[in-house]
Design a protein around this nucleic acid. Structure first.
Lengths: 157, 157
DNA sequence: CGGGGTCTTGACGTTCACGTAAGGCCTTCT
DNA sequence: AGAAGGCCTTACGTGAACGTCAAGACCCCG
């Protein structure tokens, strides 16, 4: 059975995808500009398929782990074309392996960062418990704006 | 007499730190501008201590896991001051907890990204096996030049 | 004493990933 | 009919994190 029949042939508007994934229309159009995604058109309007949705998911996931859009594009291209020029593929393969190593090292960095942050949290907690236990479980906005650090640009808000 | 022998043994020049961590002088000065690091001065020249070096290490590690310099600054401040204003600490605590959750989710993203890449590698491999098996186990530099030598640090980013 | 190398401080330029109008088209609600 | 709302394109703006000169200062060497 063809893949497109196994699923309802559902489509999405740009808003729908944005709401689902928490991004903006501008971002989706930007990804399209960059060739990462290419929805159909109904007249002028973009119409996104499940395939587009899957690509978007990969884009956002890639972004979250620090891949540049151009790198994400390379990965997505692979699933689209599959068989380009062999040298090109060999280069991609080498790049991807490098990427895997980088990601694994990044995971170690994350573990260390979490450790640092958890120790920091422990310090802060024990300190606040002694000085201002009332502030302990407050959400961020309920407390106050922060001080500017030297050299930081001013912002409204 | 070379400059590094005239100085006390436990300090670093800007070059030394840059070489060790694979970053540029401009970056270190930038971090100083932003208040993340504050080396001593020997006349005009910056002199970095072990403490500065440790801070730099945390900065780069934080960058690699996607923290903004401003956020890294907050973490570093905590270890510098320890007990500043209680409100400030409460804000930090809330932010840090948020960050921990984000990092843990990021780790899941990394795992998925690695999976994707590994599947991509498998595809590429099987394809190359049929077309150009000679390119299969080639390291990067055999395909395109310029590889970091073993022991040489790569630049973050 | 000049040359070369390394450091410094500005200040402007760049890349990435969008944000933010401005203005137009099309459909739908009132 | 007219207003509202969603989508479109074009184009300029923005913030982060530096890069890239420019123009000096300092030091050592021959």
């Amino acid at each position: 059975m063809p893949a497109e029949l196994r699923r309802p042939a559902r489509t999405f508007t740009i808003r729908q995808l944005c709401q689902e994934f928490g991004c903006t229309p501008r971002a989706l159009r930007f990804y399209e500009d960059k060739g990462l995604i290419f929805p159909e058109r109904d007249g002028m309007n973009r119409v996104y398929s499940y395939k587009d949705r899957a690509r978007l998911q990969l884009i956002l996931r890639g972004k979250r782990v620090g891949l540049a859009l151009s790198e994400i594009g390379e990965i997505l291209d692979l699933y689209e074309l599959g068989d380009g020029c062999a040298t090109q593929n060999a280069i991609s393969l080498a790049k991807f392996r490098e990427r895997i190593r980088a990601l694994e090292s990044q995971r170690r960095d994350i573990d260390m960062a979490v450790d640092v942050l958890q120790e920091a949290c422990a310090r802060l907690e024990s300190q606040l418990k002694q000085t201002r236990p009332d502030l302990l479980e407050q959400p961020v906005e309920a407390i106050r704006p922060r001080r500017p650090r030297p050299g930081e640009m001013r912002r409204a808000g």
